[in-house]
Design a protein around this nucleic acid. Structure first.
Length: 492
RNA sequence: GAGCCGUUAGCUCAGGCGGUAGAGCAUCUGCCUUUUAAGCAGAGGGUCGCUGGUUCGAGUCCAGCACGGCUCACCA
């Protein structure tokens, strides 16, 4: 951390020298007239003669990314929020003092430049500076100019450096922002209201996950960081907000992997008078809209495979998915048969697991990695879905789907259970399992059931993992690539 | 939590069978007024992740620890 290398020392000394010369070290009155990309767009196509006829003066500010010096003249590249532009400085134009100041600058310094445009011998649009000022000294050396910053750990810990020198990182996070904007617009256009519900909850609910615990001093009470906003969003359905969504962080106290960060961004939306089947179409539409706006194509490439988002997507039952991997329907319908199949596949499982839980586990093990093309998986057993509506024809399953794509789960949706008596029973059963040691089972939330007793319109709701969606659209193998500051152990 | 792999200069990397540390970029000095991986000449910069052990001698072999990556587990 306090690595005072020779390079840092040299830069500090340069700063001190400027201080002695009474040069303002951290001025804040420079206002750039232009951004690099706009200059290139506006003037890039002009000929040499047209440019030299121009009297336009441009000013821009940014970070020095490279310097090529010839003694009495130099070129450097300036990087601002949009890109890079070359700057040309020479002693006879900047003056003795101005040029000496330039010579004391380093790669990484933030400067403001004023000048006119011309084209170099090598046909690069360049600013010939007649004014140059230091706006902020960079006291640490930047990574090497053509390999950049490659060390993954350093890239996550010092994302600011990663962003400076690896252009594609900047582009990825711009893309992430665009995706989120498109999602918001999609739901706003359909009359959904965006809301914010508690992230600190006294009863964590809405998902089977371990919460983080924190403490409120004044009230002297423990609080949980939410694992899902679900139960609050459904209270809003009760309150008459018939179309509602929340796009924000969830927190789950789980291991870290290429698809798991302890805090992650989740979209949840609820629509009254709709069923989970309506949400399948809506989900197809959402992904198709984002894909078209983002890339102009319904096909995207992920991890070397092409994923075709053209609706309608395949629908498959859990059992059907397993049948595609050598299981016989008859053996999947009993607990014993299912256990036998799991053993045959060499899966380790808890023999005390109920049928429904085992079915899901076997599915995730055997079928999930192969679901590359978008697939709605349905036929989820009642016992793993305490908040979902029972299927009218077969009450042992619920009206629920999970969306798989690229070999992983992306979304989970169901027709919501709005029968308060049934909901109370199911939550009580969860609470009982919780007491019996299942710390993933949900807690009883009396107020949530009370809300349902006021009457919740029939509705369907869905959660989409936004980080995973961004991974898909940016062809990123790890969630850490799409989260600016992924959780790491503190460095020592 | 487990297994495998990695950690060498500010950055990117090389270091055969154990013999006391190298390159390019960056930095510093000198030359250079259209370069773009600018060039030329020279110089400085290292707790080889940390702690022990084996050895006459460890960047190299062994053990433990730290951090990271991948896989697995956890995540219904």
């Amino acid at each position: 951390m306090d690595d005072l290398t020779d390079q840092v020392e040299v830069r500090r000394q340069k700063l001190e020298k400027l201080r002695e010369l009474r040069i303002p070290l951290y001025p804040n009155d420079f206002k750039p007239s232009h951004v690099s990309s706009r200059i290139i767009a506006e003037f890039g196509s002009l000929s040499e003669d047209q440019l030299s006829a121009l009297t336009t003066t441009v000013s821009l500010a940014g970070r020095i990314m490279s310097i090529r010096s010839f003694g009495k003249a130099s070129f450097f590249h300036l990087q601002d929020r949009e890109g890079r532009l070359q700057v040309y400085v020479r002693r006879d134009r900047l003056g003795e003092e101005g040029y000496r100041l330039f010579q004391s600058l380093d790669i990484g310094d933030i400067v403001g430049v004023r000048g006119h445009l011309f084209v170099t011998k090598t046909k690069e649009l360049t600013v010939a500076a007649h004014g140059l000022g230091l706006l902020c000294k960079c006291l640490r050396p930047l990574p090497e100019k053509w390999h950049g910053l490659a060390d993954v750990e350093a890239r996550y810990r010092r994302r600011y450096v990663d962003l400076m020198v690896n252009r594609e990182v900047r582009e990825l996070f711009e893309k992430r922002s665009r995706i989120i904007r498109l999602i918001r617009r999609f739901f706003e256009e359909r009359d959904f209201l965006e809301v914010e519900t508690p992230m600190m909850q006294s009863i964590p609910g809405g998902a089977a996950a371990r919460p983080f615990i924190t403490h409120h001093n004044a009230l002297n009470m423990d609080l949980y960081l939410r694992v899902a906003p679900e139960l609050f969003l459904k209270r809003l359905l009760v309150g008459g907000i018939e179309r509602v969504f929340e796009l924000n962080r969830n927190f789950r106290n789980e291991g870290i992997s290429v698809r798991h960060n302890p805090e992650f961004t989740m979209l949840e939306f609820y629509q009254a008078f709709a069923t989970y089947e309506d949400l399948m179409s809506l989900t197809e539409e959402l992904f198709a809209t984002v894909a078209k706006e983002l890339a102009g194509s319904l096909t995207l490439s992920y991890g070397g495979s092409a994923i075709d988002l053209t609706p309608p997507w395949r629908r498959l039952t859990l059992i059907g998915a397993l049948e595609e991997h050598g299981a016989k329907r008859a053996e999947l319908e009993s607990l014993e048969g299912l256990q036998a199949f799991a053993r045959k596949r060499g899966l380790a499982f808890d023999p005390g697991l109920p049928y429904g839980n085992l079915l899901v586990e076997v599915f995730e093990e055997v079928a999930e990695p192969h679901l590359i093309q978008p697939t709605f998986v349905v036929g989820y057993p009642l016992e793993v879905s305490p908040l979902a509506r029972k299927n009218d024809a077969d009450p042992s399953v619920v009206d629920r789907f999970e969306l798989y794509m690229g070999g992983r789960e992306l979304a989970n949706a169901f027709s919501e259970l709005n029968d308060p008596l049934d909901q109370r029973e199911r939550l009580l059963k969860q609470a009982e399992a919780r007491r019996a040691g299942d710390d993933l089972a949900q807690a009883m939330d009396e107020d949530f059931v009370r809300a349902l007793e006021y009457g919740m319109p029939p509705a369907a709701g869905e959660g989409i993992g936004i980080d995973r969606m961004v991974m898909l659209f940016t062809d990123s193998p790890s969630i850490r690539d799409v989260v600016l500051f992924p959780l790491l152990r503190p460095e020592r």
